[in-house]
Write a protein that binds this DNA or RNA. Structure first.
Lengths: 190, 190
DNA sequence: CTATGTGAATTTATTCACAGCA
DNA sequence: TGCTGTGAATAAATTCACATAG
């Protein structure tokens, strides 16, 4: 169930077989079970065709629906997200970038021009329905409200502040501190 | 089981009761069940004492063991991590920062001086056993090897590249692209 | 003979309902 | 009377074993 997303990482054409099991560090039957939930797209006695597999996974994750993504906040974190490699693997990239700092508006970063935050109202027209929030925590909720108001359907939130949105909107929060705090739990007290 | 880490977020003294349940968006019995796995530290008819609760959680997560953390890589991502608020909530902060760029070595960022990557050998002496990798993906594995060699026990990895370490070392990988890719799955195809 | 797909068994987590202490 | 702690019931995910297609 969980390994699915990870799998598409090696989307590039490569060998095919249930040995991608140990590539994602799970046992082979987990792969088969997970796949069988969505239908069978493997050939018995042979394995899985990478190209077809990638296509199927994209369909499952709705990645072929052509979702466009906006990034709000071009501080250190925002810049890092923009430069993040691996978005290409999933077939979608960041289409628009917003910030409220006049010094940044108009600049080009990674081939995308930073726009003023007031231009968020163009999201609907541009059919952008995903957004990444990379602003200071004080501003996170306000930005989220704006995004929702302008038709965003899913938000990836980097601020440690919990944001509240209508329950129709899907939010995934990445709290670095929380993840780091989980680490000591697995470490023997020395 | 899962809500535990999230809970310590509001570590600051505050009201006490099972209503922190809806604060973390779970039902009240989940809180109680999760807590009861580690022993009972609530008073019947009253609730939980925040101060004591925070102390207990820290003990469970091994946060009171005084783990020190090093950050490797002071690019956009590294800087963002350094500036990330919320680490204080968990009682630990980043003790050392490393980079291989001579232009950055010696600079002070957020009260921590950037050291050359070759100084990683001082980790053992300084009793640093956690590390955050925020370097370009090509360098991730090499840095991980170095860290392991110098006694790091847990790694928070931001690169989309899968890194391999001895299985005694705990690695938590944060792959922004994967998280973002999960988003469309929950969105109606419109 | 190889590697998939899937029902059945086992283990784990979630939810409920209620007893017990303040 | 209110809120915690916990055993029992329910649901879900893991693991196994094996039939089946290529």
């Amino acid at each position: 169930m969980r390994g699915l997303a990870l799998l598409s990482q090696q989307g590039l054409g490569r060998v095919s077989s249930g040995k991608l099991a140990d590539f994602v560090n799970v046992n082979s039957w987990q792969i088969r079970k997970d796949f069988s939930y969505f239908g069978d797209f493997g050939t018995r006695g042979v394995g899985y065709d990478i190209a077809n597999l990638a296509r199927q996974i994209k369909k499952i994750l709705n990645l072929d629906a052509g979702h466009k993504t906006a990034l709000v906040g071009v501080g250190n974190l925002g810049s890092a997200v923009l430069a993040y490699p691996g978005f290409g693997t999933y077939g979608f990239s960041i289409t628009a970038v917003f910030d409220n700092d006049p010094a940044k508006v108009g600049k080009k970063i990674n081939n995308v021009t930073v726009e003023d935050i007031s231009r968020l109202d163009s999201l609907v027209k541009r059919q952008i329905d995903l957004a990444i929030i990379a602003v200071p925590e004080q501003a996170a909720q306000a930005v989220a409200d704006l995004l929702v108001m302008h038709g965003i359907k899913g938000i990836l939130n980097f601020s440690p502040r919990r944001i509240t949105v209508p329950k129709k909107i899907k939010v995934i929060t990445i709290d670095i501190a929380t993840d780091l705090a989980r680490l000591p739990y697995y470490i023997p007290s020395s």
